[in-house]
Structures are given as structure tokens and as C-alpha cells.
Amino acid sequence: MSALLEVRDLRLQFGGVTAVDGLSFEVREGEILAVIGPNGAGKTSAFNCISGFYLPTAGSVVFDGKAIVRAVPAIWRRLGLVNLLQSFGFYRVLPSRVTKWGMARTFQNLRLFRELSVLENVTTAMHANLREGFWSTLLHTPGYRRAEAACVREARGWLDFVGFEDDEQLYVTQLPYGEQRRVEIARALATSPKLLLLDEPAAGLNFNEKQTLMRLIRKIRGLGVAVVLIEHDMGLVMELAERIVVLNYGKEIADGAPEDVKRNPAVIEAYLGVYESEDAS
């Protein structure tokens, strides 16, 4: 199988702090990959680089044959204009473009649109796929009405798919936490991704909700969508993931099947520490 996402030597520095230090991994089409690591290991920073929010210091990210990190000509670096140019969208790929290419993501702390209803939250995510122009919206042409109807139908399809059973006209802030998580996944799916990045999807969920989440993630994979998830719940990761990448201090320390990773001494050391080393220091 060909690689859908290829990350090579990704490095991200904030001043003197190296958040991601030479990370390389790849995601194949239609697989479930888990990225784990202790707190502060650089998992979310890596996600932010991949989805275009952060600009990595070095390295390359190729998604579906398209480069997400772009090279800046040396002249701009010498003139010190790199940040200015990039803030205007030059020499970088905006996250919105990455999403249009087919990579969707959720956020660690829920970031739904708080003043929109559940249905509107999902229809908003279909922005890039909707044929609606300025004049057709202003004049409410038949084409506009068709597009709106199609958009609502599609959104309801996704809400049913993720198992949302509450009232779709409620504001998201009126929903319990578990339901908000579902809406966020429905919203990400509505961008019609090939790859879905889930940042701690099980955080704050109870046992039953985690079971439903696992079924949902398998269902998403069943649609042919590759899933990459950051997660701290080892039970869930071991049961769900086909491959696991382990990070510590921004470095990749293991990459392999769950059974191999579980037995990997470097992983055990990262999570539990080693007695001898403490004595030595």
C-alpha cells in the first residue's frame, strides 16, 4: 500500500525549546495509527505541523503526493521577511487548503462553534465542497436552495453516522460532553477527508462512551478513511490501533504493532522510568 501521509525529519523549535525533534513516520491508506507518548512529548505540536497550523523549523510533510511544508527562498530568510510573508499565506500551505486536500482534524479541547446549532456546526464544515456563490445566496436561486438542501441532508447523514440522537437544532453548548465529542467528529467528517486526525478523542469519556467511540472509529476506517489518533488511554489504543508510534521529548522512540511496542524497553522506560538510572544520578 502506498503512503497517504509521509512525515520526514520533522523538527519544530520554539525559541530554545525543541518540541518536535526529527520525527519521521508514515500513514498508509485506510489504517488506524496511534501516536502515544507522555505529556509534553510533542504529539499535539506534531499534529499542528502536519495540519498546517504551525510552520516546522525543518523537515517535510507530504500528504497525498502534495507537499504541506514549503521551502522558502534563501533571499527572504536573509532579508528577515519570512514571518511576514508566511503570515500573508506565501510559502506556506494554509490549514484550510490542507483540509481541502482531504485531511481533517479535531482538537484536544473541544473547539466547536459555540453560537451555532449542532446542524450548522456540521454544515459549516462543508464550506469548501458547496456550490454557492454570492449572487445565488442573495437571490435565493433554485441552485442555492438545492445546495442548501443537499448540504443539510449530508450533515444529517453524518450526524446519524456518528450516532448523534439529540435535537440537531440545539446550540452545542447545551449538549453533554460526550455528545459534543460526537458532533466534533461529525464536523470533521463533513469535510470529506481521506485522513482524519483525532487529538485525544476519548479524553473525558466514560467507559461506555469509549466503547462507542471505538466502534465509531472502526466504522470510519470502514469508509476507507485513514485515522491517526493521539490518545492516553492505553486500553483503547492497544485494542484499536494497527500500528503505534511512540514519542518522547519530541523524538520517535518506537514504531510498530501494538504487541511489539508494549514490549519495547525504550517505551517502558519512557512511561515508567528506570530504577538504575535514578540511582546513577
Binding site: T99, F113, A128, L130, T191
Partner: peptide
Amino acid sequence: RLAKGRLGRAWKAVRDDEDAAEAMGINT
């Protein structure tokens, strides 16, 4: 009418959470 359509949803998304809007494929 503009506020109810595709463009209006994009505006409201930007207002509520700019990063999330960007992640949803909206060029903010």
C-alpha cells in the same frame, strides 16, 4: 440572506473560533 448561506456560516465560524474554522476548510 448572506448570513444564512455558505458565506454567513463561514463568518460565524470565524467569529466563534478562527483556528477551528481554518481547520474546517474555511480560508479565514
